[in-house]
Design a protein around this nucleic acid. Sequence first.
DNA 1: TCCATATTTTTACAATCGTTGAAATATTGA
DNA 2: TCAATATTTCAACGATTGTAAAAATATGGA
Lengths: 102, 102
Amino acid sequence: METKSAVRMLAALAQETRLAVFRQLVEAGPAGRAAGELAEALGCAPATLSFHLKELSNAALIEGRQDGRFVIYAANFASMNALLAFMTENCCRASSADGCGC
Amino acid sequence: METKSAVRMLAALAQETRLAVFRQLVEAGPAGRAAGELAEALGCAPATLSFHLKELSNAALIEGRQDGRFVIYAANFASMNALLAFMTENCCRASSADGCGC
DNA sequence: TCCATATTTTTACAATCGTTGAAATATTGA
DNA sequence: TCAATATTTCAACGATTGTAAAAATATGGA
């Protein structure tokens, strides 16, 4: 993974509301959840949530699909795994030599 | 780890210069590197680097120690591991059931 | 002590971010 | 087609961020 992608993903997750959204979607699994449901669960205005969903989408951390008049969002587990791999690889390299548990 | 700590750490790493600093420090291992050395390596003004080092320090991702007239910074591997654990735990929970590789 | 070196703090400013009301767009059912 | 529902886009705003020059602080050596 490129550094730019990693920064974009980290920035997307580095915000309380968005991290909460992402966790909801992880919990929901591949079935995902509707935008409105998420807005209500998190107690924020639809426009606010839409903004954050777009941020997460741009970072490729989630994906939305239209389902009738709802838009269902689901976590992109492959992307999240790539990010974790990047962080383990690039931010923990000294580990084996120095007792880091990665 | 609390959500707030995780957000603070993610925000600290979600910036190109700071991610580069952290990677340098991971590479340097526990021996660390002097602030000035890092500034030169990354090509940014000392004041700018100091600002970013403080951000990383506040997030507990790095630690500085005075060594003569230098300040040596080193990565805090325990914190990084805690962050990785948090992300695996909270952002990949659906994994086992759904084929995520964590 | 005085000077040179290393780093941080202060200050200022442009750029980006997070939020939300209002308007626009899309979809379904009558 | 029209009304109702779901979501996004637009517009505006205050708040935060990233940057770096200038000043302040800290350390070691002459």
